Simulated assay, not measured.
Amino acid sequence: MDVMEKPLMSVRHFHKQFGTGCVHCKAGRTEDLVGNCCPHCGTVYACRDLNFDLYDGEILGVVGESGSGKSTMMRCLYFDQEASSGSATIRTYKDGRANLFTESSQQQRFIRNTVLGMVYQNPYLGLKMNFSSIGNIAEKLIAAGGRNVAQMENRGVTLLDRVNIPAHRRKDEPKTFSGGMQQRVQIAKALSNNPPVLLLDEVTTGLDLSVQANVLDLIKQIQRESGVSMIVVSHDLAVIRMLADRTIVMLEGRIIEQGLTDQIMEDPQHPYTQQLVYSLL
Score class of each variant (00 low, 15 high):
Y78W: 07
G145H: 04
L200H: 01
R162V: 09
E5C: 12
L8S: 05
N164P: 05
N193V: 10
S226F: 12
I264K: 05
L237P: 02
E257K: 00
L77E: 03
E173T: 14
A188G: 05
T261L: 04
V239M: 12
P196M: 03
T247P: 05
V119P: 00
N51W: 02
V211T: 15
M181P: 01
G227W: 02
S84Q: 07
I264M: 08
F110T: 11
L280Q: 07
Y124G: 09
I255S: 00
L200D: 11
F110P: 02
K94R: 14
I255G: 00
Y272P: 04
L251E: 14
T273W: 03
T20A: 12
G145L: 13
T102K: 09
F18G: 01
A46Q: 01
T176D: 05
L116C: 06
R184Y: 01
V149W: 08
E139A: 11
T30I: 15
R162W: 12
V228T: 15
L280D: 09
S132C: 04
Q183S: 01
C76F: 00
S133G: 07
H15R: 13
C37E: 13
R241Q: 14
F110V: 14
E65I: 01
S229A: 11
P268H: 06
I219E: 09
G96M: 00
R109W: 04
K70W: 02
T205D: 03
E58K: 01
M181Q: 15
L199N: 08
Y278Q: 14
L200M: 15
T30H: 14
V163L: 01
D161V: 00
D32M: 14
E139S: 10
E225H: 07
L60P: 00
D262P: 06
A213E: 15
S210T: 14
H40S: 12
F79Q: 06
L141V: 10
R48W: 10
G21F: 01
D95Q: 14
E65N: 10
R224D: 15
V197N: 09
A88Q: 10
G64N: 04
V11C: 02
S10G: 08
E173R: 15
T20Q: 15
Q223V: 06
M152E: 07
C76Y: 04
L218Y: 03
T158F: 13
G86Y: 00
I256Y: 02
I222M: 05
M73Y: 11
T20C: 06
V232A: 06
H270F: 09
G28N: 02
S66E: 09
H24Q: 10
E103G: 00
Q258L: 11
Q17P: 03
E173M: 15
C47S: 10
L276R: 07
Q274W: 10
T30M: 15
L116H: 06
P39R: 10
